[in-house]
Protein backbone atom coordinates (compact mmCIF):
# COMPACT_ATOMS: atom_id res chain seq x y z
CA UNK A 1 0.00 0.00 0.00
CA UNK A 2 2.81 2.31 0.86
CA UNK A 3 4.26 1.87 -2.59
CA UNK A 4 1.02 3.00 -4.22
CA UNK A 5 0.89 6.25 -2.30
CA UNK A 6 4.58 6.71 -2.93
CA UNK A 7 3.64 7.56 -6.50
CA UNK A 8 2.99 11.12 -5.33
CA UNK A 9 5.17 13.36 -7.39
CA UNK A 10 5.25 17.08 -7.91
CA UNK A 11 7.48 19.63 -9.62
CA UNK A 12 7.99 22.80 -7.61
CA UNK A 13 10.05 25.92 -8.00
CA UNK A 14 11.99 27.04 -4.92
CA UNK A 15 13.44 30.48 -4.43
CA UNK A 16 16.08 31.14 -1.82
CA UNK A 17 16.70 34.61 -0.37
CA UNK A 18 20.43 35.44 0.03
CA UNK A 19 20.53 34.51 3.75
CA UNK A 20 19.07 31.07 3.04
CA UNK A 21 20.85 30.13 -0.17
CA UNK A 22 24.12 29.33 1.63
CA UNK A 23 22.62 26.77 4.02
CA UNK A 24 22.01 23.11 3.27
CA UNK A 25 18.22 22.72 3.46
CA UNK A 26 17.17 20.73 0.43
CA UNK A 27 19.18 17.66 1.48
CA UNK A 28 16.99 17.47 4.60
CA UNK A 29 14.01 16.60 2.44
CA UNK A 30 15.63 13.21 2.02
CA UNK A 31 17.14 12.93 5.49
CA UNK A 32 14.21 13.95 7.61
CA UNK A 33 11.17 13.38 5.44
CA UNK A 34 12.07 10.35 3.34
CA UNK A 35 11.45 12.23 0.12
CA UNK A 36 13.35 11.72 -3.12
CA UNK A 37 14.16 14.69 -5.26
CA UNK A 38 15.52 15.26 -8.68
CA UNK A 39 17.14 18.62 -9.38
CA UNK A 40 15.86 19.78 -12.77
CA UNK A 41 17.42 23.19 -12.69
CA UNK A 42 19.42 25.22 -10.19
CA UNK A 43 20.95 28.64 -10.36
CA UNK A 44 22.39 31.28 -8.11
CA UNK A 45 22.68 34.95 -8.91
CA UNK A 46 25.71 37.15 -8.14
CA UNK A 47 23.63 38.56 -5.27
CA UNK A 48 23.23 35.08 -3.78
CA UNK A 49 19.58 34.72 -4.69
CA UNK A 50 18.98 31.06 -5.46
CA UNK A 51 16.41 29.35 -7.66
CA UNK A 52 15.84 25.63 -8.03
CA UNK A 53 13.33 23.48 -9.85
CA UNK A 54 12.80 20.21 -8.00
CA UNK A 55 10.83 17.14 -8.83
CA UNK A 56 9.85 15.70 -5.45
CA UNK A 57 8.40 12.25 -4.90
CA UNK A 58 7.37 10.32 -1.81
CA UNK A 59 4.35 10.09 0.48
CA UNK A 60 1.94 12.96 0.15
CA UNK A 61 1.99 13.69 3.90
CA UNK A 62 5.79 13.66 3.90
CA UNK A 63 5.70 16.02 0.92
CA UNK A 64 3.52 18.44 2.91
CA UNK A 65 5.86 18.19 5.91
CA UNK A 66 8.89 18.74 3.71
CA UNK A 67 7.35 21.76 2.03
CA UNK A 68 6.45 23.23 5.44
CA UNK A 69 10.03 22.66 6.57
CA UNK A 70 11.34 24.55 3.53
CA UNK A 71 8.90 27.38 4.17
CA UNK A 72 9.94 27.60 7.83
CA UNK A 73 13.49 27.97 6.61
CA UNK A 74 12.64 30.96 4.44
CA UNK A 75 12.38 29.19 1.07
CA UNK A 76 9.56 30.36 -1.14
CA UNK A 77 7.68 27.62 -2.97
CA UNK A 78 5.69 27.88 -6.18
CA UNK A 79 4.19 24.94 -8.03
CA UNK A 80 5.61 24.99 -11.55
CA UNK A 81 2.12 24.55 -12.97
CA UNK A 82 1.30 28.08 -11.83
CA UNK A 83 4.33 29.46 -13.58
CA UNK A 84 3.92 28.32 -17.14
CA UNK A 85 1.15 29.11 -19.55
CA UNK A 86 0.15 28.28 -23.06
CA UNK A 87 -2.02 30.75 -24.91
CA UNK A 88 -4.41 28.31 -26.55
CA UNK A 89 -5.61 30.91 -29.07
CA UNK A 90 -2.08 31.65 -30.18
CA UNK A 91 -0.67 28.11 -30.47
CA UNK A 92 -0.84 26.92 -34.08
CA UNK A 93 0.10 23.31 -33.23
CA UNK A 94 3.15 23.23 -35.49
CA UNK A 95 5.13 20.95 -33.17
CA UNK A 96 8.49 22.78 -33.15
CA UNK A 97 8.55 23.00 -29.33
CA UNK A 98 8.42 19.22 -28.97
CA UNK A 99 12.06 19.01 -30.09
CA UNK A 100 13.28 21.15 -27.22
CA UNK A 101 11.07 19.90 -24.40
CA UNK A 102 13.38 17.84 -22.20
CA UNK A 103 10.69 16.37 -19.94
CA UNK A 104 8.17 15.38 -22.61
CA UNK A 105 5.56 17.82 -21.26
CA UNK A 106 5.00 19.03 -24.81
CA UNK A 107 4.20 16.18 -27.16
CA UNK A 108 2.16 15.43 -30.25
CA UNK A 109 -1.02 13.42 -29.91
CA UNK A 110 -0.68 10.86 -32.70
CA UNK A 111 -4.43 10.73 -33.28
CA UNK A 112 -5.35 14.41 -33.46
CA UNK A 113 -1.80 15.54 -34.33
CA UNK A 114 -2.24 18.45 -31.98
CA UNK A 115 0.51 19.58 -29.64
CA UNK A 116 -0.51 18.65 -26.09
CA UNK A 117 0.87 20.27 -22.96
CA UNK A 118 1.04 18.17 -19.80
CA UNK A 119 1.77 20.75 -17.15
CA UNK A 120 2.52 18.09 -14.51
CA UNK A 121 5.60 17.01 -16.45
CA UNK A 122 6.80 20.56 -17.08
CA UNK A 123 9.95 21.70 -15.28
CA UNK A 124 9.53 25.32 -16.45
CA UNK A 125 12.97 25.27 -18.06
CA UNK A 126 11.76 27.91 -20.49
CA UNK A 127 13.13 26.31 -23.67
CA UNK A 128 9.71 26.32 -25.36
CA UNK A 129 9.24 30.02 -24.69
CA UNK A 130 12.47 30.72 -26.54
CA UNK A 131 11.70 28.62 -29.62
CA UNK A 132 7.93 28.98 -30.07
CA UNK A 133 7.53 30.83 -33.40
CA UNK A 134 4.32 32.55 -32.28
CA UNK A 135 5.29 32.97 -28.60
CA UNK A 136 2.39 30.92 -27.34
CA UNK A 137 4.35 29.72 -24.29
CA UNK A 138 5.22 31.98 -21.34
CA UNK A 139 7.09 31.23 -18.15
CA UNK A 140 6.53 33.62 -15.33
CA UNK A 141 9.22 33.29 -12.68
CA UNK A 142 9.73 37.01 -12.32
CA UNK A 143 8.18 37.32 -8.86
CA UNK A 144 10.62 34.76 -7.52
CA UNK A 145 13.48 36.90 -6.34
CA UNK A 146 13.84 38.59 -9.70
CA UNK A 147 15.07 35.45 -11.38
CA UNK A 148 14.23 34.99 -15.01
Amino acid sequence: MKEVIKGFRKIVYLSFPPDVSGRPVVCNLARRFDLSFNILKAEISPRQVGGMTLEISGLEEDFEKGINYLKENGVRITPVAQKIFRDEETCMHCGLCTAMCATGALYIDRATREVCFDVDKCSACGMCTRVCPVRAMTVDLEDNGGLE
Binding site: M92, H93, C94, G95, L96, T98, A99, I108, T112, R113, E114
Partner: peptide, 13 residues
Protein backbone atom coordinates in the same frame (compact mmCIF):
# COMPACT_ATOMS: atom_id res chain seq x y z
CA UNK B 1 16.06 10.14 -33.93
CA UNK B 2 13.04 12.14 -32.75
CA UNK B 3 11.17 13.61 -35.74
CA UNK B 4 9.66 17.04 -35.26
CA UNK B 5 7.09 18.68 -37.53
CA UNK B 6 7.12 22.36 -38.45
CA UNK B 7 3.96 22.22 -40.54
CA UNK B 8 0.77 22.28 -38.49
CA UNK B 9 -1.25 19.21 -39.42
CA UNK B 10 -4.42 20.21 -37.52
CA UNK B 11 -4.36 23.56 -39.33
CA UNK B 12 -3.58 21.95 -42.71
CA UNK B 13 -6.60 19.70 -42.26
Amino acid sequence: VQSVPLTSLPMSL
